[in-house]
């Protein structure tokens, strides 16, 4: 099947086609979903290699479940977000059990086109500080904040991903933001925030 045809199909249709042996459907799903999962994992974990592992593992689970997928019960993307965020949470938990220095390696490089050296440094400092602060939050708060403020998912979808109600999501996000502010309180100058 040509790619321009697969682009018009829903994730669910493509998954059914893949389950029936259509390789073009697998290519289309990979191009459509893997970058989003990779972005989520990168932001939650802050480590390129780990983010790649999580992305590959989440997609592998999608391929395996394809023949048993029950139409209409969940969105493919929501199911995949859930798998990926759980994999990230597991890794964050393991990091905490082995200690901060060993578990939290240096972050990924800032975007190559970051404007100016000073701005680039500040960009890097802010990104690293946020990543470190997120890693200090309880896992579910970290997941909710990442999905809402970094991935831009609406609260109802986050609720589906996390298997909780919308009010619980709102509460997790609110507590998470308070937690982030508390963690970052002593670093405001360093991050370029003035009184």
């Amino acid at each position: 099947m040509p790619l321009d045809v697969t682009e018009e199909r829903s994730d669910e249709d493509l998954l059914a086609l893949y389950a029936g042996g259509d390789r073009a459907a697998a290519r289309a799903l990979t191009l459509r979903l893997a970058p989003r999962i990779h972005a989520l994992a990168s932001r939650m974990l802050g480590d390129g290699a780990e983010a790649e592992d999580v992305t590959q593992e989440a997609m592998l689970r999608l391929w395996k479940i394809a023949p048993d997928w029950r139409r209409g019960e969940a969105q493919v993307s929501t199911w995949l977000w859930r798998v990926a965020s759980n994999l990230c949470t597991d890794r964050l938990r393991r990091r905490r059990s082995v200690g901060w220095d060993i578990a939290f390696p240096e972050g990924t490089e800032p975007a190559a086109d970051a404007p100016g050296v000073e701005a680039g440094l500040q960009h890097r400092a802010r990104t690293a500080a946020l990543r470190a602060a997120l890693a200090d939050l309880p896992e579910r708060q970290c997941t909710a904040i990442t999905l809402r403020h970094l991935e831009g998912l609406p609260n109802p979808e986050i609720a589906d991903v996390m298997g909780v109600g919308i009010e619980a999501v709102e509460s997790l996000i609110a507590r998470g933001k308070r937690g982030l502010s508390a963690i970052l309180k002593g670093r405001r100058d360093e991050l370029g925030f003035e009184e």
């Binding site: 893949y18 390789r23 697998a26 290519r27 799903l29 990979t30 191009l31 893997a34 970058p35 990779h38 972005a39 990168s42 932001r43 390129g48 790649e52 992305t55 590959q56 997609m59 592998l60 391929w63 990924t108 800032p110 975007a111 970051a114 960009h123 802010r126 990104t127 500080a129 946020l130 990543r131 403020h149 970094l150 982030l180 970052l184 991050l191 925030f193």
Partner: peptide, 26 residues
């Protein structure tokens, strides 16, 4: 401001990763 900085950072998945994912699918 911190979220905005982090949102700009998203690195695209490597070609090698996409290849591995597709190989798994096959």
């Amino acid at each position: 401001a911190l979220f905005a900085a982090a949102r700009q950072e998203g690195a695209a998945p490597s070609t090698a990763l996409m290849g591995r994912i597709l190989a798994d699918a096959y």
